[in-house]
Design a protein around this nucleic acid. Sequence first.
DNA 1: ATCATGTACTTGTATGATACAACCATTTTA
DNA 2: TAAAATGGTTGTATCATACAAGTACATGAT
Lengths: 144, 144
Amino acid sequence: MSKESLTTIELEMAVLVRRITSIASNRKDDSLVRSAYLLLHQISVEEAAGVKTLSNELQLDISTVSRQAASLEQKGYVERVPSPHDKRAYFYRITEIGLKELTQYKKLRLDKISKLLHDWEEDEQQNFGQLLKKFNYAIKDLSS
Amino acid sequence: MSKESLTTIELEMAVLVRRITSIASNRKDDSLVRSAYLLLHQISVEEAAGVKTLSNELQLDISTVSRQAASLEQKGYVERVPSPHDKRAYFYRITEIGLKELTQYKKLRLDKISKLLHDWEEDEQQNFGQLLKKFNYAIKDLSS
DNA sequence: ATCATGTACTTGTATGATACAACCATTTTA
DNA sequence: TAAAATGGTTGTATCATACAAGTACATGAT
């Protein structure tokens, strides 16, 4: 196994995070609270999940998700539906306007990435996407 | 240009950052302040750079670098050498112990990544590294 | 049926990483 | 030589997050 490639990955991974953080901090297009993007995405995908489930999936503390969700609800992007059989529990559902916002925000990001990678070969893009996905899968349970 | 791949990249990029942040937050092996890792790396690579230069390279606010550097100095990982011709300016140099720390920390990360990707094909690793690097290069000046 | 324990969630509080603005000391320029 | 620019530090604010304590409800053992 070549140390070379791994060393590259190790460093470039750090750089990547730095770059992205840097861009994130410079956000004006902050229509959707950035940090809640994945949460909203997850809610849109999930059928019926409460903060517990969501926080597991996102590997965030439950309190963080609780707050993010509250903020999304406050903006009208999600609704909180009480669970029929458990009076403690809720589940979230994305609203019309939430879906619209999500779509728009996704598009914004997509545009940025399209521009960024406009001169990449098709198969480089494809490859990169797949490898990222694979990497994320691998890294998924590293915290435990 | 296939929207497919770009969409994947868009989403997986967000997930990646989330995953890494999550791992970062539960680190106890925080021997080297994590956030300063790239700074120390940069100092080790650079000949003689002050906070201004460094902050440009890292795309961090100068005040942030100033504090990080101070903290590295405080730990004895870098020395601050006064610039001979400009009494305002300093430049940083990594120390023996700083280099040792850096190496050790790099190794730690490398090990983790090795483990993570142990079942990847050699050329996948290679590819991923190169694509990450290319991506970082592309994204470099996006903030401006 | 009751009480102890567990669960879903919220709220209080702390921290780390960062940015922005005000500042100081020195250097450069007009 | 005065004004503007530059390198750096320090004060203060914000954001995302975690951890801990609390509330309300649910479940299971006696």
